[in-house]
Write a protein that binds this DNA or RNA. Structure first.
Lengths: 217, 217, 217, 217
DNA sequence: AATGAATGAGAATTCATTCAT
DNA sequence: TATGAATGAATTCTCATTCAT
């Protein structure tokens, strides 16, 4: 194999992967945008194909079980990378507050961008118990991982039992998600984003204290 | 007319009405229970008919637009009567806390009993924008009514502007609902009901203060 | 049986008959008016009952086979009496023209008043072959009867063979009906009734001559 | 590209198109034949699918609104091409009669071949007011087009106002259609096709003269 | 006789999924 | 690989008809 053709092989493979990922992203975007317009149960795979201007066959090639698969795989993809970019490294007593604000803001932005997905996900878990459980496990594993890392690099967290630390993370995560979902998809709690995020930050601080104090009793 | 036949007349008239309402209730219960098992989008009107052992025609007699109508009418029926039983009469500075606890507990029980409906409702509003808006208006009207009554019978509430009072009611109502839904249908926040309700009560007190203080600045 | 009660019996029987006929007329009118609005195949017996404010059971009491029966019985009733009021007595060479004008005008009015029925009838005979044949036989019998009467009382018609006379009557009747139906229910031929009726009269005269001359060759 | 593969390319492209049109034609034929047997309102899309040995989904792929769409699209297709094949080029005073005979014969054959469609169409316009109006407009446009062409190529028609010419065409067209429909679907006017067509031709000549004379007064 | 709730067969329509090209 | 025609089971919805009251 000549050098040239080897490069061509690499290139084509890369190009292929890029094309493939672009097609998958196209399906994700089209699907979730349609859900935003028409709701989960009125959005069919055929609609998605037509709207994305690809064939229905292509959708089933990447997502052999259709709608459920799209949600499941997006769930895998997004959860996999969601919290990775947050820097836990230099969290300490002084900047916990900043950290929490940042965390809340991040979740807020994430929800805004994934509103369609969140609608889909909540509809899907109604019938897809496996997804529902996987979701719970995934959250547990993510925060277990986080907790372990945090306890390694930060003195302040070492005295708290790992189990407890995971628990409190999950608690805060769920609490914020619950309110975000309702605010964005059911009924607004505040008329501006700023007010809303500020409230959430305060709520998180309060709830964190409450949760930790409660158990120490 | 003998006493017996008079009673028979009463009975037959009552029985007729009861049968109709009982049939409607049967449809409600069957539908929401099936949703609990299989999810909203996998529960068809035919499933409901079969499960309730009535004919599909009967469902469409009472709910001409099928699933959407069941949700819409249950929404009307339940919202109509929901907060009516709570006694606002003797709320005062001393028992605000009790009142809030009671309110939270009530909502909690209501959610537990209406879990299927809540799943259905959140799925339905994804595509039924009219229902979504009616829901918002209904909530506004209910709490407007509440606020007016409260200001008539209680000195403490007279100084707060009515608009403000309505706003804060709706805020608290939404906040609690958001968390209840997530806890019951997405992921538990606490492992026991007691812990959960206690947290909610504290959260409500905190949020109420936050909300009122925020605006007074 | 006392005289009184005998009268009461008569009365109640008459009243009963009147009520019965009124109910039947109500069903006819409601049915044919609905057809005018929505078309035959979108008008159901249930619609008729609701629109006439009577129960569906009542309709099936008088018309056990539903829609088909309404049309069949109206057909019987109306054909039975349709041509009876026309006076054939003094038709002669001088007033044939007048007679034909009168005949055409009569048919025109009849069609205008029975537009809904005519739509229904033409829809019904598509599937109800029995009705279709009965209709043909009825027309034959009516005009056979007419021809016989005419030949008895009028010298001019005696030389024409009875069969021929019946044939020509039916031919003219069908011709006029064809054009009336199209004009009233498909597309107008003239913009005023007067023009239309005048044309029809001339057409009939022409066709009559054509028909008679044709066979004499 | 070899000649063979080029042909294959042409063929495959042609075959694809033919298959699609063939499927549509299959649906048309099956539908209208069933209507001939059972009538419009007793012919369901499911019957058509079963009878044509295709799936119900295929029907809805080509005709998304079912029966109404089949009629609407056949109407478009057939009206589009209906009068196009008639040669107006050398119509003149001597051959007007021949032209009319030809026109009548053409309409007669057309009705014979489209009896099922004509039944369907007359049933459909009872409820489909849009189709009813489109039909009227289409007829106007077709004859407007005809009139314009005729006036360009033929001296004899230049003195008649265009509006008048269109009117008289539509009048004759409707008159013939009215009688054809009645003869074929309600009750026969003549016992042989020849007699019937001859009568129609004479009727058209008569009516044409009547119509033109009437206005010139 | 009159009512209208109830039935369920069947018509209309959608949609996940397959497969030949 | 990609396409999209085709499938048919499942869903929504209608309607003629029955029957208990």
């Amino acid at each position: 194999m000549s050098n040239y053709s080897f490069n061509a092989f690499i290139m084509s493979s890369k190009k292929f992967k890029r094309d493939k990922q672009e097609k998958i992203n196209l399906i994700y975007n089209t699907f979730f945008n349609l859900i935003l317009e028409r709701g989960y149960h009125k959005t069919s795979t055929n609609h998605v194909a037509k709207s994305a201007k690809i064939s229905i066959g292509t959708i089933y090639k990447y997502f052999p079980k259709g709608k459920e698969d799209i949600i499941r795989k997006y769930f895998e993809d997004s959860m996999e990378t969601f919290l990775d970019h947050q820097d836990l490294g230099n969290i300490n007593d002084e900047n916990v507050r900043d950290f929490l604000n940042h965390f809340v803001l991040d979740l807020f932005k994430n929800h805004q961008e994934n509103k369609g997905y969140n609608l889909a996900f909540r509809s899907a878990i109604q019938s897809d118990k496996i997804l529902h459980n996987t979701h719970k496990e995934k959250i547990f594993n993510i925060f277990k991982d986080r907790a372990e890392k945090l306890q390694k690099i930060n003195e302040n967290f070492k005295q708290i039992p790992e189990k407890k630390l995971i628990e409190v993370f999950i608690f805060i995560f769920n609490l914020v998600n619950a309110i975000l979902y309702h605010h964005l998809s059911v009924m607004e709690l505040f008329d501006t984003d700023d007010k809303f995020v500020e409230f959430l930050s305060n709520l998180v601080t309060f709830s964190l204290k409450y949760y930790l104090k409660r158990d120490s009793v």
